[in-house]
Amino acid sequence: MKFKVLPVILFIGLLLLALPIGCIDNNNNLSVSEQKKTVKIIAKRKKSEFWDVVRMGAEAAGKEFNVNVEFWGPTNELEIDKQIEMVREVINEKVDALVLAACDYVKLVEPTEEVIAAKIPVIVIDSDLKSDKVKSFIGTDNVGAGYMVGKTLVDIIGENGNVAVMSFIKGAASADQREEGFFKAIKDHPGINIVTTEYCSSNIDLSEFLTYKILNEHEGLDAIAALNADSTVGVARAVEKRGLAGKIRIVGFDSTPDEIEFLERDVIDALIIQNPFSMGYLGVKYAVDTMNGKPVPKIVDTGSRVINKDNMYLPENQKLLFPLTDE
């Protein structure tokens, strides 16, 4: 059988042609470096014990899902305009998703929706926003948590008594909702008299000062309900300094080390604790999921529970109260 040379040459040529294609393919696979996405978190405040835990959760998620996590926020929770500005800046930055804790329920709607319009998904944590365009809200059921404050307070002082409320910022969703829940709980107990409601602007010193004012103005006060970490610490300081620890009962909010110390020293009677770690973690996780086109739940309740001196060292509670720092 005579072998024709032409087809053989053609075939070998074809093979030679194919080899570099295979190699190029492999090279591509090797050389393509994954572009790390960036999730930006704009918190209500850049630095505080509560937000540090949120940040820990966010960073844990960033590590797990291989994204950069940038943590930002105004220096205090009253700087609504500053936060608005920060949110607007996101549009011009290389950010793939935004996780926001809104300082104001209404005022931040506009800039946030601008961000969403720029095709950057937004997840809201801790404090809700009056917008249905955000992908998800992750936070404490604040009405429920406020209700828990009221119930716990009644359990402590009984059906009769004078109570002052130390809230933080009017207009912030978390504050409004906690108040709403708190008053709902108190409404069932006509013997409880709410003497005043103050707003400390999430400032410990202001809270302490306002507490002195309340103590001066309202004699025969039985208890103070504080609705966030800063208000609680301020109230506890004032009450302790006046030597009223144990006489004026305090039900606080959150679980910063200061608050825990006050709890252990019997200045604070009970704390309603949230789960800031979960907020940070889930905020970033859902941001990543959204970027990857996965569906995320519209509302996530990260839960809250009542902590007092007796149950604080139960294994399940100490895990929440003392977050493991990840160095």
């Binding site: 820990m56 959760g57 844990a60 797990e64 789960n275 770690f277 979960s278 973690y281 889930l282 895990k319 929440l320 977050p323 493991l324 990840d326």
Partner: peptide, 10 residues
């Protein structure tokens, strides 16, 4: 490695 995540139930 994700002890805290397990502690908070995530």
């Amino acid at each position: 490695p994700q002890q805290q995540l397990i502690y908070v139930g995530l």
